[in-house]
């Protein structure tokens, strides 16, 4: 469990990545954040991550597509979806497509941290 996690954050609203990155780095994990999903996926293709946290709504490539592409590259990766404010219904499709869990905005970094910890446990076991 002490293994450092490689976490990727994808969100086209910069506030999310900007605030999340330092919060998640606090525990020593390695975090990269992207505003451009396309660049993020290119990066992922060159090197897989343990955890991908992605917003579901993005202009060019949306979260579901990120989810599909990530899982097709690496089924070990756990994908966590950030959904919009009070839009749980949207999470349905993501879960059906194999997302590990979802979190609705606004959220506390510690809430996300809890999900990441659970995800890490699963991939370890």
């Amino acid at each position: 469990m002490d293994k450092k996690l490689k976490i990727m954050i994808i969100d086209d609203e910069n506030i999310v990545g900007k605030r999340l990155k330092p919060a998640l780095e606090k525990t020593g994990d390695y975090v990269e954040s992207f505003e451009d999903a396309k660049k993020a996926l290119e990066r992922f293709n060159s090197e897989p991550f343990d955890i991908v946290v992605t917003d579901i709504r993005m202009d060019e490539i949306d979260g579901l597509e990120v989810l599909e592409q990530v899982l097709s590259k690496s089924n070990q990766t756990k994908v966590i979806i950030i959904t919009g404010y009070a839009t749980v219904e949207v999470a349905r499709e993501a879960l059906a497509k194999g997302a590990f869990d979802f979190i609705a905005k606004p959220f506390k970094p510690s809430d996300l941290r809890a999900i990441i910890d659970r995800a890490a446990k699963r991939s370890a076991s």
Partner: peptide
């Protein structure tokens, strides 16, 4: 979300952007 009974369709989309 869709509820279909015979030829009656009730569909809804809520809280989307």
């Amino acid at each position: 979300s869709v509820d279909r009974r015979g030829d009656l369709i009730i569909a809804w989309l809520r809280r989307y952007t």
